[in-house]
């Protein structure tokens, strides 16, 4: 049973199949609940996104869809992604490559497009790293 620490180090995070209603004290006593069972899943976030659309919250829905994609990204990589989007951390090319990599490796088209959009904006406003 891998603990979460290891799961976070996986290239692609694995998703638990344990239904939430089985996360009970008895389940914990019987060692049927592991750390990866108590993390949110891609499909759950996609469903929350659908709910947000239905309620008239399109921006929140887009955030949830990006989050759904990011469930596959390990924690350390998440922080690297954030760091690379901060001002003057990346060149235009690096951001475009990052966008491609995220799309390809994690099946994350919306996040990839978001990074590409940032690359264009950074290019116009001097937010890229100057080598």
């Amino acid at each position: 049973m891998p603990d979460r620490h290891d799961a976070e180090k996986d290239l692609r995070r694995k998703e638990s199949l344990l239904p939430p209603e089985e996360i009970t004290l008895q389940g914990l006593r019987d060692s049927r609940v592991a750390p990866e069972d108590v993390t949110i899943r891609r499909r759950t976030l996609e469903a929350q996104a659908e709910r947000a659309v239905a309620e008239g919250y399109p921006q929140l829905a887009r955030n949830f869809r990006r989050a759904a994609e990011l469930t596959a990204v390990p924690g350390d990589t998440l922080l690297v992604l954030y760091e690379k989007l901060r001002p003057r951390r990346s060149t235009h090319g690096e951001l475009l490559a990052l966008s491609q990599e995220i799309i390809a490796r994690y099946d994350a088209p919306e996040t990839g497009a978001y990074i590409r959009e940032a690359a264009e904006a950074y290019l116009r406003k001097g937010l890229l790293r100057m080598d």
Binding site: I40, L45, R66, A67, L70, L78, L81
Partner: peptide, 9 residues
């Protein structure tokens, strides 16, 4: 992106 990162967890 940070907002999405938190939501992803």
């Amino acid at each position: 992106l940070l907002a999405s990162a938190y939501a992803s967890r």
